[in-house]
Amino acid sequence: MILLEMLSYPFLARAMLVGLLVSLCAALLGTSLVLKRFSMIGDGLSHVGFGALAVATALGWAPLAVTIPVVVLAAVLLLRISQSSRIRGDAAIALISSGALALGVLVVSLTSGMNMNVSNYMFGSILTVSRADAVLSAALCAAVLALFTLFYPRIFAVTFDETFATATGTRAQLYNTLLAVLTAVTVVLGMRMMGALLISSLLIFPPLSAMRVFRSFRSVTLCSAAVSLACFVLGMVCSYAFETPSGASVVAANIVCFGLCALAGKLLGR
């Protein structure tokens, strides 16, 4: 029906594919990030991504080729900051993210003026999804799925108790960095469709919804992935049917789902 009609447009089909892949990655990575209290990193990364994208566009460089390395670098930096006991981690992340946002806005307004472009970056547009996005998100998704299936025991151990994992010979820092880098790529790929201000909700909502209902790490991870995919499809269909912005529609679907999960959790007595 409506979904088939949507898929008959090539650009929409491509956007759906990229969105589904990114949603899956975001849900899996988000589970670990939320449980490790790193939710703010996702938000910080999207702002850095906005700044980098604005600068790249202003200078006429390929957007992905500039943004991905910059955001990956920022991810490693933000991880370091939030683990360091000397600096106030949350404050430093807020500084970096608002700083990057301000830089982006300045660059955009000095070059092309505050026009449609900025609005697209901030709140997303499915028209910006390119062929390169599709290829990259397929590669990213393969990497994230491989990480979560092949290293599942290690991911659990590092997420639950980093000290214990390190003491028994696991290189926790390596897995943390890997998570941060993959999150960075996820944020950049999802950012242009979902919007810089909205992408972090893909990381945070699905795991939180899953945690309302499920109580083991495996079930939370699987449910989070399922919730994320379902909410994305639902949001896109609503966006198509009611002509609402796609990013905001997906977030709205996630909010409704969170409410339902919270209600279900209450009813189940959890």
Binding site: L35, K36, R37, P153, R154, F156, A157, F160, D161, F164, A165, T168, G169, T170, M211, F214, R215, S216, F217, R218, V220
Partner: peptide, 20 residues
Amino acid sequence: ALQRDFPASVFEVVLSGRLN
């Protein structure tokens, strides 16, 4: 504090001791 409200089953936690 992070562990006290971590969604994990008892068995998942104990099994992670075999990581080494």
